[in-house]
C-alpha cells in the first residue's frame, strides 16, 4: 500500500468517524437524559442536511451561518417533538412503571415520528438527489498526497463542536444539571430544579447535534431522503461499541468503526460491513457493556 493511499484512507475514516461521533453523541444525550431510544435521529440528520440546502443554496447565506441556522432549526424541531409527543407520553409513567414498558413505548413513539418526518420530507422535496456545491472546493497537497479540503473542514468542524459540547457539559451549571438528570431525575427535582425543561433541552441538544452532523456532511455527499435510514444502523452500532453513557467511549467507537469501514471497503469490498458487524459481536462477547461503558441498565 502506498503511503498516499494510506493517508487518504485515514482522512476518509476520520470524516466518517466524526459524523458518527456527532450523531451518537446526540443519541446518547437523548438516551441518557430522557430515556428515549430515538429512532427518528436519522430523520433529524436528514432534515439538517435539507435545512442547510435551503439556507446555503437557495438563500445564498454564508456556510457557517447556514450551519448554525440548521443546528438551531433542528433544536427547535427537537424541542417541539419532545413537547408534542414524549412529554405527553412520559406523563403517564410513574415510579412503578417497568423500565421495559417505558423504553418500548417511547421507542415506538419515536418510530411514529420517524415515519411522519420521513414521508413528510419525501413529499416536500421529492425523491431526487440534490448536491450542494462545496464551499471549499480546493484540493490541498500534503507531502504529495492530494486531500480534498472539504473533508479536512468536516473533521475540523466536528472537533470544534465536540470541544464546545465538552465545555457545555463539564464547565457550565447547565451541563452539570444535564449530567445530574441522566443519573437521577428525582434527586435533581429535590434540589429545586425544574427538570421538565431540562428534558426538553436534552432532546433539543441531541437533535441539534444530529442537524449539525447532517449539515456538515451535506457538501460531501448528495442529499437524499434515504440518507437518514442509512446512517441510523451504523450510529446504533457505534453507540453499542463505545458503550452507552460514555462520551470517551463514543469517540473511540466512532473512530474505530470509521477506520474499519474505510479500510474494509478499500480491501474487502461490500463484505466489509458484515465484517464490522461480526467484530462488534466479538467485542460484546468479551465486553458486554461496550468498550468503555458499563453493562446493564
Amino acid at each position: 500500500m502506498s503511503p498516499g493511499l494510506f493517508i487518504q484512507l485515514i482522512v476518509n475514516a476520520l470524516t466518517i468517524g466524526s459524523i458518527y461521533i456527532l450523531m451518537v453523541l446526540g443519541l446518547d444525550i437523548i438516551l441518557r437524559g430522557t430515556k428515549i431510544l430515538n429512532f427518528a435521529h436519522g430523520q433529524l440528520y436528514m432534515l439538517g442536511a435539507y435545512v442547510l440546502l435551503l439556507f446555503f443554496q437557495t438563500l445564498n447565506l454564508n456556510f457557517a451561518l447556514a450551519l448554525i441556522l440548521s443546528g438551531a432549526t433542528l433544536a427547535v424541531v427537537g424541542a417541539l417533538s419532545y413537547l408534542g409527543v414524549f412529554a405527553v407520553l412520559s406523563r403517564r409513567f410513574t415510579v412503578s412503571t417497568t423500565f421495559s414498558y417505558r423504553l418500548l413505548l417511547s421507542a415506538m413513539a419515536s418510530v411514529g415520528l420517524m415515519m411522519i418526518l420521513q414521508q413528510g420530507t419525501l413529499l416536500c422535496f421529492g425523491t431526487q438527489e440534490r448536491g450542494i456545491l462545496s464551499p471549499f472546493p480546493q484540493i490541498i497537497d500534503v507531502f504529495g498526497v492530494r486531500i480534498s479540503l472539504t473533508r479536512v473542514v468536516i473533521i475540523f468542524l466536528s472537533i470544534l463542536i465536540c470541544i464546545g459540547l465538552f465545555l457545555l457539559m463539564y464547565k457550565t451549571r447547565f451541563g452539570k444539571i444535564m449530567r445530574a438528570v441522566s443519573y437521577d431525575p428525582e434527586a435533581v427535582t429535590l434540589q429545586g430544579i425544574n427538570t421538565f425543561w431540562i428534558f426538553v433541552s436534552c432532546f433539543a441538544l441531541g437533535s441539534a447535534l444530529a442537524g449539525l452532523a447532517g449539515g456538515i456532511i451535506a457538501p460531501l455527499f448528495s442529499v437524499t431522503p434515504a440518507m437518514g435510514q442509512n446512517i441510523i444502523f451504523m450510529s446504533f452500532l457505534v453507540l453499542l461499541v463505545g458503550g452507552i453513557g460514555s462520551y470517551r467511549g463514543t469517540i473511540a467507537g466512532g473512530l474505530l468503526v470509521g477506520l474499519l469501514l474505510s479500510f474494509g471497503f478499500q480491501f474487502m469490498g461490500g463484505i466489509a460491513e458484515l465484517f464490522v458487524f461480526i467484530l462488534v459481536i466479538v467485542i460484546l462477547v468479551f465486553k458486554p457493556g461496550g468498550l468503555l461503558g458499563e453493562a446493564n441498565e
Binding site: 431510544l37 444502523f233 446504533f236 452500532l237 458487524f277 459481536i281 461496550g290 453493562a295 441498565e297
Partner: peptide, 12 residues
C-alpha cells in the same frame, strides 16, 4: 446485555 443494549444488538 439487558435494556437498551439488547434492543440495539437485535436490530443490528
Amino acid at each position: 446485555n439487558a435494556g437498551v443494549a439488547f434492543v440495539i444488538i437485535t436490530l443490528i
